[in-house]
Design a protein around this nucleic acid. Sequence first.
DNA 1: AAGCCTAATGGTTGCGCTAACAGCAACAGG
DNA 2: CCTGTTGCTGTTAGCGCAACCATTAGGCTT
Lengths: 327, 327
Amino acid sequence: MTVSRVVNNSRLVSASTRERVERAMESVGYIPNSIARSLVQKRTGVLALLVSDITHTWFTQLGHEVEGAAAAAGYLLVFGNTDENELTEREYAEKLSSLHVDGVLLAPASRESRETIELLQRRGIPVVLIDREVEGVELDIARGESYTPAIELTDHLIAHGHTRLGIVAGPDHVWTAQERVRGFKAALRRRGLPVPRRFVRHAQLTRSGGAEEARKLLASEDPPSAILAGNSYLAAGIVDVARERGLRIPEDLALVTFDDSEGPSEWAFYSCYEQPARAIGAAALRFLLDRLAGDRSGARRAVLRGDVRLRSSCGCLGAAPPQDHRQ
Amino acid sequence: MTVSRVVNNSRLVSASTRERVERAMESVGYIPNSIARSLVQKRTGVLALLVSDITHTWFTQLGHEVEGAAAAAGYLLVFGNTDENELTEREYAEKLSSLHVDGVLLAPASRESRETIELLQRRGIPVVLIDREVEGVELDIARGESYTPAIELTDHLIAHGHTRLGIVAGPDHVWTAQERVRGFKAALRRRGLPVPRRFVRHAQLTRSGGAEEARKLLASEDPPSAILAGNSYLAAGIVDVARERGLRIPEDLALVTFDDSEGPSEWAFYSCYEQPARAIGAAALRFLLDRLAGDRSGARRAVLRGDVRLRSSCGCLGAAPPQDHRQ
DNA sequence: AAGCCTAATGGTTGCGCTAACAGCAACAGG
DNA sequence: CCTGTTGCTGTTAGCGCAACCATTAGGCTT
């Protein structure tokens, strides 16, 4: 039909016909069927963002940014939540590829995400990684840093005079957690400080996960006097436990963490390395849009630098324990 | 083809053929095209959740719950973010209806959302409202309470001895904000207390929005000694301003709020009325699934009761100002 | 005036799938 | 033997759209 030409406003339609068609569409209440269109055009105008935890502020900030930019480029963004689980992730990938989304931004759950990625690539769906590397995968990626800042933060704790340091990082299968642990250990070794295995803890990336591991950490005979937390949720859990045990922060327990970014105001108490969520999202989307525009060049990498913010929880802004935040 | 029958596992296929087909699918890497299927079946297996702010913990908790339940029912959930804006909302609705999502859960941005809803209904897409009523729309809805709890919270402040009370609510076009203001005023009137117009403030539902209005509230000659905040983000903004002005909470300024639900630990300091986000999400999805199963009965309403949690910010747990949460 | 271009429009086809039906074998009952 | 029944498999059509080709009208060139 000529209707199609009107809808897609091809220029090969006379003004009079166009108007006639438009009036007709109006009166019938015609709405083009994107599904049929997608079937023939092989593009849907939908992008997907798969994150590991949609309740995590950091990811939603990033998502918010990506969504705005995607809308500006004429794409609809859908969010998916993998729950830090490769199986859920794979299922999402299958659904999304069967729905023929045009591209996927993925914060990979673990090493196993490689299969998810390969699945998507086999279907010709461009993938851009967010936040986390996957071993053996050469792909566009936008992320922050983990190794170097972990060293910086650890060094900072050491500069405060601590010699018994612990870390509560995310699950072992999460790339950023591995990197942060690696940086932590490197910093300690460089200073000739011990790295007791029991001071290196992996937790679920939630407040209760952080609390659980903090409890193990602080239960020992000779507990650490300073902790590097893998992110602000873990830090909040650690603070919970400190409160439980009557430990003042930073006097009895110093704390530094990661990932704060426009978070709740409580986090304003944590000394942290702030990952630029929005900038990472924007960079990732740009990579994806370039791919969709036909860019076939090699894998690109955007490693965005964040800022260290020294506040109360390490002792830089004086002793200011949050134990008044009782339930 | 018989292939279709295998994929949809109809029972009219012999075991041998099924296996043969499956082996073939495996070897070719065949994946069914959901788009084509959707085109003929007129269902996509996709549900949408439109919220006004995806960075708001309350909505993501709700979303997380809905997503899990939707997945269990075989549906994929996509999230959309309307930014508290009817236009964005309408655009989403058009895109989603043109993508033929099977149903929509909507937290309506304002009264104008009525048009969004009518648009979707005209296309035969079932809609269930979340959290907020829309005047003149009779539709399934799952929400918490606002009017009654606002009275309770206000009464509680009065019981603490306050006579000059203010409210920082969400934007005037948001239903819950209207209700909370209505309850606030009703409680004051019932006790014979004045309701100065300048003590009733509407703010953007963000921390900075809350701070802005709190500044106006506290700048007056005879400022309120107690504030009811419309949600925890607004409360955080109010706390920021109190800190700015050296006001102790609750001694110099008492604070009660809404919406806390598994939020950041800072919120554990706020006395609040806790809306059951997850339960609301679950109820809404159940309504939607019932509609999809063919339920044609009248509009249903689930009004879920939450709990008042009395903590430090109103003075119930002793004076415990959070001013140590400095930047 | 013949030939040829261009702009505007309509017709046909096929994207990949499934609903509906048609076909066919095997077998039971009359 | 025929008819009916069951159990499986193949065929046809059509979902709504756009790519492609065909057609027409009108204007331009030579």
